[in-house]
Amino acid sequence: MRIPFVRHWKLLLAWLVGISIGMALFSSSSPLRARAQSAPHLGYGVNPLSSSDPGIGTMGFDWTKVFDSPGTRLPYRVLRRVDAHASTLSHLSAWGDWLENEARIWADGIEAWEIGNEPNLDASYGWAAPPNAADYTRVLCEAYRRIKRADPTAIVVSAGLAPTGRVPFTWNGHRGYCAPGVGWCPGYYQDEREFLREMLQAGAAHCFDALGFHPYGFAAPALAAPGSPECGPNDFCFRTVEVIHRIMAVEFGVDKPIWATEFGWLVDPRQVGRSECWNDPSFSGRHWQVVSPDQQATYLVQAYQWAEANWPWMGTMLLFNYELRIQRGPALLLPCM
């Protein structure tokens, strides 16, 4: 999902620049590798279309995500996402060899590795098959072992789980599971909370340094609490990550950080000069999610402030997604999805 960035961006810019100044004062004498976490405890990151985009630094971000080798040492801390699908299991050892070699090559250029993306979905960018938490855990543990052998200081982040909402069905013994022919299910996917429970039951906690999650705000305000009317029956809101933390920490006794490897709010394209996107087929199912540019800016600032004040367990938060258009200021003006 592509999220047009704030056109009315000054509120967010002021907040991030202030944070970046504080981090520079705190850490100017330390190399990037020695500062895997920012001061204060959050990492302020972005999913950019280009890791060389000068707007990353302009906006005060100190982390960026890449989806391939960055090519050179970037002036930010780097999270690299690697593909991990059901098909990876068929050549797991060879994939592990490749990943270990990459981690060794990039030991001085990549601080953290995210293993896969939204594995609780059957989409091509997710597990690309009916999701299976135990199978994903096998891939995650192979990745963890290989990366740590090549670079013991690297941070391994599990794939960001997709918020699917509550699924009331059980399929093949998996709770919270949608499958064709089961209820109203159009495809295969699993409630992120049940997928997490199955991951942890399979031993995943031994194979990540931080748990990945995608706490998108959808249409809810940033401060809306899980279980509130503003979040709706599916808890589609930013603070739903609090439930994820509770499952991990209280139900399973796992004391590890969570990284928001994607988060944000979808701006109304009609308000940022992209009216044609409103009726684009790729966008039509997301009308209910949109907010105004001013709301988006306000919610993003509130999200960072809330996490800093209330979530000592939150690590890096990577806004999705971002591109700098010099002639228009920081704004994401892209194909509709």
Rank of each mutant, 00 (worst) to 15 (best):
N120P: 03
S124C: 09
T170C: 01
R146I: 03
H85R: 14
W95S: 08
Y304F: 15
V139N: 10
L318I: 05
R80N: 04
D68T: 05
G57K: 05
P54M: 06
A297I: 04
V254Q: 03
A86P: 01
A128R: 12
P330C: 10
D97I: 13
G187W: 10
L92R: 15
L140R: 10
D108M: 04
R270F: 10
P130Y: 08
A150I: 04
G173C: 02
A123R: 11
D209R: 07
S158Q: 13
L32I: 06
R270P: 02
V291D: 00
P163G: 09
A133C: 03
G43W: 02
L211Y: 14
G315S: 15
A219D: 14
S20N: 14
F5Y: 15
V82L: 13
K148D: 09
L11K: 15
A202N: 01
V6D: 01
A94V: 08
Y177M: 00
M59A: 02
D235N: 15
A159W: 12
F283T: 13
L140H: 10
G183D: 00
E102V: 04
L332P: 00
M199T: 05
H91L: 03
S228A: 13
T137V: 12
Y44A: 01
S158D: 14
P180M: 00
R145K: 00
T298H: 11
T298Q: 10
D83N: 12
Y144R: 02
G18N: 13
Y216D: 05
V6R: 08
L300G: 05
P269F: 06
D191V: 12
D255P: 04
Q305W: 03
V243D: 13
H206T: 13
L92W: 14
F320W: 15
S87P: 09
R328I: 03
V66E: 07
W259G: 06
G203A: 07
F67L: 05
R325P: 01
G57P: 06
F263E: 00
Y44S: 00
G176D: 10
N234W: 11
H174T: 07
N132E: 13
L74W: 12
D191F: 01
D97E: 15
P119C: 12
R138T: 12
T72D: 06
A129V: 06
R193D: 06
W313Y: 15
L333D: 09
I110Q: 14
D83R: 14
M1Y: 12
I326N: 02
M337I: 07
G22A: 13
R104W: 04
S27M: 04
K65C: 09
M314Y: 07
S69Y: 08
S20Q: 14
Y216M: 07
W113F: 14
M199R: 02
E118F: 11
M23F: 02
V241T: 13
I115L: 10
A220E: 11
M248C: 02
I244Y: 05
P335E: 15
P48N: 06
S228F: 12
R145W: 07
I258F: 01
F283W: 12
S38T: 14
M1T: 14
R7D: 08
T316E: 09
R175E: 13
N120K: 08
C178G: 08
L318F: 04
A34T: 02
V241P: 11
V157E: 01
Y304T: 04
W306T: 04
H85K: 15
V301I: 01
W171Q: 10
V254D: 02
P269W: 02
Y76L: 12
P40L: 06
L211R: 08
D191G: 06
E242S: 09
